[in-house]
Design a protein around this nucleic acid. Structure first.
Lengths: 149, 149
DNA sequence: CCAAAGGGCACCGATTTGGTGCTATTTGGG
DNA sequence: CCCAAATAGCACCAAATCGGTGCCCTTTGG
């Protein structure tokens, strides 16, 4: 399905909140108090992001999570990839542009290559959305000033 | 997850095959013989596309399916929408741009609006991919000659 | 008139997803 | 110095989704 998982949604809410708290460590509890998200789940998600180096964490009484890098350097593509794996579109997709992969349909598959182009376009869109642009949508244009129609 | 369902994949394979058989009715069996797809499932998917007016069907001995409209008029967005529902990205999404919807997070949700912009970009990508461009990728550029970076 | 095809629909097994339980470890503050 | 608040790490479960079939009916060409 072409939809983010709840985990990704929670991650985005949490991360955007972290943008406005540069440097401070924010606890999962605080996030769950401010937004209607299950505290344990948001913690689980943030742990995962910590393992992948997107956020720093501090344990103990005044612990919590903080962005590990500037908000402008963290892209939506990266977040999604960590939590859901790289967006593939097709099941026979090994993940990289030219790779043949182990698709049993492969030799006869008529849609493989064109669909991969679509996939790359979508990745491109996600790659150009930064945490910064999510947190401050009106600051500067999120992507190239969308004028296509 | 940011991935098509098998149903959608099968639909794309089938539909692309139909492009090259303009006018002829192609049976689900023939499709299953040519590609490694479960015949029953591909039939089920084509039935769904028929109900939505994307393909015509003919019953009886020499029956089968054929495109109901020119391949250039059928977009990937349309196919996906029929089989999976409109690409939403977020769970709180009622599907249309300005709609407030019934999201319980809504009042406090900080990512709603920017994510909707991303969603619209993705829909845009899918809207510009036609069955024709999937069937003949090299004929004319699939979308606007991608030059963004 | 029968075999081949689609129409309808219910259903099942496997996987994914959303969410929780439990326990251990760290750490700041009274 | 110890306790409360936090994260770390799993394992686990219930519900939803998804991939795929079974069954029976109707249509239709040879």
């Amino acid at each position: 399905m072409l939809q983010f998982t709840k985990r990704t949604e929670y991650a985005l809410i949490a991360l955007v909140h972290l943008v406005d708290r540069r440097g401070e460590f924010v606890s999962a509890r605080e996030l769950a108090d401010r937004y209607p998200v299950p505290p344990r789940l948001v913690a689980e998600v943030l742990k995962e992001l910590q393992r992948e180096g997107l956020v720093d964490s501090q344990r103990g009484a005044a612990g919590g999570y903080a962005l590990a890098r500037p908000a402008a350097d963290i892209t939506l593509a990266e977040i999604v990839t960590v939590l859901e794996g790289a967006p593939l579109l097709t099941s026979c997709d090994t993940g990289f542009a030219g790779t043949a992969g182990s698709c049993e349909v492969e030799p006869t598959c008529p849609i493989r290559s064109p669909i991969h182009r679509v996939r790359d376009r979508i990745r491109d869109v996600l790659s150009h959305v930064t945490l910064e642009s999510l947190a401050h949508p009106n600051a500067l244009p999120m992507v190239t000033p969308t004028e296509n129609r």
